[in-house]
Design a protein around this nucleic acid. Structure first.
Lengths: 249, 249
DNA sequence: AGAAGCCCGTACGTTTCCGTACTGAAATAA
DNA sequence: TTATTTCAGTACGGAAACGTACGGGCTTCT
């Protein structure tokens, strides 16, 4: 019955089932969880797998267990930038929580992993049946919104190194290992900067002993040092998440 | 019965009372409006008047009728940037909609005006009594969230002139006149750029015949031209607002 | 094994915007 | 009216990041 995801060495995509690793699901009461369970399915989330398409109806709500989703705003001239990430602390499909049926942004797996998903309609039905469930997903949506606001702040005021450090910390928070399996190119796309700029910045991090790099992957070595680089651009959304959801990432 | 708004030249700060000019209030059913009315009070909103303080409980929900609220994210090192504006299309206090009682961001009147307000507790009570009211304010919160995401996009990818043009358009959408009563300094704070940078950019706009300026004020002359400058960084949140709320600004 | 493609390191001239600061003009207060 | 403050115009060196591009190493495909 269970589908074993091929365990790659590069990331921690191996699904675990008999345990609810998504924090949101874990926080639900038994009865709320029971509302979702019938149509909840285990799913492997491959890197680059598309989860939401701008202006298209949301098909499923994904509860990530391992891996990271990038939510990317796009405009008419195809300018794009990441407005937030989602990992085991949250869910995709927040527009559904607001009563909307379609996605505004592009969303896809930036780092592969696994999780569970439920059809959008079933999620909405469940949310309408339970005030406590609704309250919980509302808080989750709020936490994401706070993250987006601070992304706006970082994009406007922080330097490349600060933003890159912030991103690495946010990814690290959502991974089970210190390895971040990403190319410079993808980091650049998310931050909306040049690939070469990322390379230089990462090189600087490496010289300072903050990370180790190899092709297609980097590893955090000195997290505290990276936090120092990110400075005050990292931390508030994380603290707010803890306040709202009563847990750490 | 109606009180004619005294047309000031500098801004439209004169309060109007017996007419609902806030789009959100205007969209409410009579019964939903009746839930709010008892504790709804008319209020003059002076420029720089503080509406929300980060990490402090929200005292009132403000329904702006004229004027513009700036919502500004701030971090520990006092870096700050505007993450969105609110005018007659919306309301402040969106965290209440999510079930939170405190503000994350700083919010204050960037352009003075008038509106109505209701104590936070009364608003929450009303929202809990009516699903239609809740649905409406949820959509409003979502519209604001979309705006924030596109602010993040503009902050990361747009040039100063593009961002400035975008801001002017957003302000213009929410004002009854073409005059924007603001100093370069405040525009600079909102965009997170140098005051001198704003001066130069506005000067360029003026040379191109897009605006007229005088001390403490600028006037839009060629809105289409400004839209051209903003390019694709302006428009999506506005279209989404229309889609969600079924109305223009 | 060889070819092809992807990824990273590096470089260089250019653009954008910053930090800072000085000035004069306009508005406000004394 | 005079003094004070606020605001806008302008300047200049410098930092940050851009667009572009080339070459070489690692992976993957055939």
């Amino acid at each position: 019955m269970t589908i074993e995801a091929g365990a790659t060495v590069m990331n921690d995509a191996t699904p675990v089932r008999s345990e609810v690793r998504n924090r949101l699901l874990a926080k639900m009461s038994a009865s709320d969880l029971a509302l979702l369970t019938p149509l909840l399915e285990d799913i492997t989330l491959k890197e680059r797998q598309v989860v939401e398409v701008p202006n298209k109806p949301i098909t499923h709500v994904y509860f990530v267990e391992t891996g990271v989703v990038s939510v990317v705003a796009v405009n008419a001239e195809d300018h794009r930038i990441e407005v937030g990430v989602i990992g085991r602390e949250g869910m995709t499909g927040s527009p559904l929580v607001f009563g909307d049926d379609r996605a505004q942004h592009s969303a896809y797996m930036q780092i592969g992993g696994s999780g569970k998903r439920i059809p959008a309609a079933a999620f909405v039905t469940a949310m309408n049946q339970s005030q406590t469930l609704r309250a919980l997903v509302l808080k989750s949506a709020q936490a994401f919104m706070i993250q987006t606001a601070h992304t706006a702040l970082a994009n406007g005021r922080a330097k490349l190194e600060e933003r890159l450090a912030r991103w690495l910390l946010m990814a690290h928070d959502r991974l089970n290992s210190d390895a971040v399996p990403l190319t410079h190119e993808f980091l650049a796309v998310m931050l909306g900067v040049r690939r070469a700029g990322v390379t230089v910045a990462l090189h600087s991090f490496e010289r300072r002993g903050l990370i180790a790099t190899r092709r297609g992957q980097l590893t955090l070595i000195n997290r505290a040092g990276i936090e120092e680089v990110a400075g005050s651009f990292y931390g508030i959304p994380e603290a707010e998440l803890k306040r709202l959801m009563g847990e750490t990432l």
